[in-house]
Structure formats: structure tokens, C-alpha cells
Design a protein around this nucleic acid. Structure first.
Lengths: 133, 133
DNA sequence: GTTATTGCAAACAATTTGCACCCAC
DNA sequence: GTGGGTGCAAATTGTTTGCAATAAC
């Protein structure tokens, strides 16, 4: 792998750093177009893929199947409702410290992890109880 | 939500229980067809969606974007290589005990969680080092 | 000048949806 | 007989790929 980065990769990385949040490739594409920075959608995907493989951006796949990319260093975990799809961010991350152990045990260079909880939010749980009994 | 399950849902649930592993909807569709159990692909998706919302099957999305379904109760977590895509299953799960706390803190009924680590396997890390410098 | 990168559009694949048919109650 | 469940095929959507034009070194 090259340490060298293409112009598009630089642009995308810097955009992600500026926005400081997770974005889908499509959203990122639109964001880059809004700036006078023309770019092709394919290039966005290709660049994100390269950055991902270098460990510079983290990828999380939403329950919709859409991938979202970020370069924030802080973990981003959620409680996601299977019924309404809403996500609640959580702060806890009991996993980070495990990475070191795992890296050594499996000879595997870990860049990041994803951790997501699924279930029912209080509102949907209420509705379900109602129609159930 | 109904506690009542359709015939297709029962079939799929039982198939998942028998196979005891994660399957994509497409694979499951093929498996069900192999048995003389004709079923439509759309029905597989619809049934899986219903079972998912009842918390009876767990869904994990592969890096390819494909969803895989299972009804095993044991956690299934992996180290996945961003370069070659191979996945190594891991046994540790430092998260399970957190579920109770989270449920109470957020009034959220948690059915399951996903936890995946991403990085480079030893082989790909070697290759990268080589072409890098 | 040569090679890698880019943009566009077409291709692809997983999933969802519309609708007619059928089964269970 | 009615309403939900089902299968099929078409539609949708996110992503990838082929290829010619272009930029970088």
C-alpha cells in the first residue's frame, strides 16, 4: 500500500475531518459537490475504500445496508430500534481495552471496531405491548 | 406485534435452528428450495424481517453489505481483515454484561448486539509492509 | 511520455414492493 | 367469504466496474 494519497483522497479526508461526523458515500458526494469541488461518485467510493484500508477512516454499516464513513477517533456506538429504526448514541465502550489483547492473541492489527445494540425503544415496546395483549 | 407466526416464519426459524449458523437471505432461500420446501425469495425477506423485529433472529451485516441471519444465542464476533476480507471468529465478549445497564439507562429493550473488529490480518500486514517501504 | 487517477454511465447485487392468487379461519 | 400470507417479477438503491479523457510525475 502507498502512503501517498491522491488528491481526491486528501479532499475527502479533510472533508470528513471538518464535518466531524459519519456520512454515507452519497452524502459525502453531495457535500463535495456543494463546495465548488467537483468529484465523481465512483471516485468517492474508490477513495473511501483506499482510506478505509489504510485505517484512516472507519466504516459502519447501518441497518439499511448503507455504509457510513468517519475519521473521528472516538468510538461511536448506538442502540438501534428494530421497529422504528431510530438510533440512540451511547458513550460507554467496554471494548477498547480488549483490542490490545486481541491484537496479540491473533496477530491482527486492529484499526477500529463497531459495536451496536439492537432491540426496541421504549415507544415501540409500548406499542407492541398494546397490540399484543 | 403478533405472537402468532406464519408458516414461512416457522419454517425459516426451524431451518436456522437446524443449521446453527449465520446465513444470508439468499443462502437461506436456496437451502429452503433444496428441501422440497418451495418458498419465494420475497417471503424469506419478509419472514426474516418479522422474526428480527420479534428478537427471534439476530442480524449482522457483512462488510460486503449483505445481511446474515442467525438464531444462535451465543454471541458471534469477528476480526475482519479490511484487505482480504477474511474473518476470524473470536470468543471473548466483554459486552454482554453491559446490556442490563444500558437497558435500564435508556429504557430500551435490548435483544442482541453486534461487535466486530476491523484491521489487517498478519498476512496482509506483511504484504503491506513489503510494498510500502 | 508514461502511469495512475478520474468521471461518467452501464452493470451489478441485495433488497423491497405491487399485485394477483391462495390458504386458513 | 374475507383477510392475511405468498410468489413472482419489476422496481429501487447502494455500490462497483469498464473505459476514455486527464492529471501527475
Amino acid at each position: 500500500m502507498n502512503t501517498r494519497r491522491t488528491r481526491s483522497q486528501e479532499r475527502i479526508l479533510s472533508k470528513l475531518k471538518t464535518l466531524r461526523r459519519s456520512l454515507s458515500a452519497q452524502d459525502l458526494y453531495l457535500e463535495m459537490r456543494k463546495d465548488r469541488q467537483g468529484i465523481g461518485l465512483a471516485t468517492v467510493y474508490r477513495s473511501l475504500d483506499a482510506l478505509k484500508r489504510e485505517g484512516l477512516v472507519h466504516v459502519r454499516i447501518l441497518p439499511t445496508g448503507e455504509s457510513v464513513y468517519s475519521c473521528v477517533l472516538q468510538d461511536e456506538h448506538h442502540l438501534t430500534c428494530l421497529e422504528c429504526g431510530r438510533s440512540i448514541p451511547i458513550n460507554e465502550c467496554p471494548v477498547h481495552h480488549l483490542e490490545t489483547t486481541l491484537q496479540e492473541a491473533h496477530h491482527f492489527k486492529i484499526y477500529y471496531h463497531t459495536l451496536e445494540f439492537f432491540g426496541l425503544c421504549s415507544e415501540c415496546a409500548k406499542k407492541q405491548g398494546r397490540s399484543d395483549g
